[in-house]
């Protein structure tokens, strides 16, 4: 089953891309650092190409606060190893239904598509998760995600390794991509 997200406004995409901050290092004392070291040991097959760098890290993680049943998680993932890292699944502390979503060109417009095969973070590069772009989709939320609340997220890699981090929920007016399932039912995402 393939699900598709269509951007309500193409403008939103442009703005989001222009705001890409993948090269800006975070000074946040976020959970990323400690989580990254966990990932390093779990990721097994990969090896850090530079000493002192976590093998997988995320900077500026956050989740959109919502009182609806869906939300997105964002941040900039970094692969500091010299091998590709294949992300195959995501899980979260707020729901059992979590998906990896990417943005692709389809019939002349950008749409959000579930990445059924996951995605690969190439060695030494960053993978940006942002509103209007690739993101982690959290669905069927049983309770609101309140602003300031911490959400735990875990990526699972093809080799069985995992990477867990904490993302704080923030008030955010954007990230309203229309969620269009191939079966046709359409609901706005938070």
């Amino acid at each position: 089953m393939k699900r598709t997200l269509t951007l309500t406004a193409a403008l939103a995409l442009g703005a989001a891309l222009a705001g890409c901050t993948s090269t800006v290092p975070s000074e946040q004392p976020s959970a990323a650092a400690s989580a990254a070291s966990t990932a390093a040991s779990d990721a097994g097959s990969s090896a850090a190409s530079e000493p002192g760098l976590a093998e997988v890290a995320i900077t500026d993680p956050w989740v959109k606060a919502t009182d609806t049943e869906m939300t997105g998680a964002f941040g900039t993932l970094e692969n500091n190893t010299d091998v590709p890292i294949h992300v195959v699944a995501v899980s979260s502390s707020v729901t059992d239904r979590n998906e990896l979503h990417e943005m692709v060109m389809q019939d002349g417009s950008m749409v959000m598509v579930e990445m059924e095969e996951g995605f690969v973070i190439e060695p030494g590069t960053a993978f940006v998760l942002e509103p209007g772009g690739n993101h982690l989709m959290l669905m069927d939320l049983a309770a609101p995600v309140e602003v300031g609340e911490d959400v735990e997220l875990t990526l699972e890699f093809e080799d069985g390794g995992t990477f867990t981090w904490i993302a704080p929920a923030r008030t955010f007016a954007g990230a309203n991509e229309e969620y269009v399932e191939s079966e046709a039912s359409a609901t706005p995402t938070p």
Binding site: A15, G19, T21, V24, E27, Q28, D60, W62, E146, V147, G148, E149, P168, R170, T171, F172, A173, G174
Partner: peptide, 29 residues
């Protein structure tokens, strides 16, 4: 919730005062 707000503002201040966009900044420039 007040504590959460003060955490959020502290984070925002730390970024903006350094010339960096806020975490969810939609006008980072």
């Amino acid at each position: 919730r007040l504590e959460r707000l003060l955490r959020i503002w502290t984070d925002g201040i730390s970024r903006l005062a350094a010339g960096r966009p806020g975490l969810t900044d939609t006008e980072p420039e």
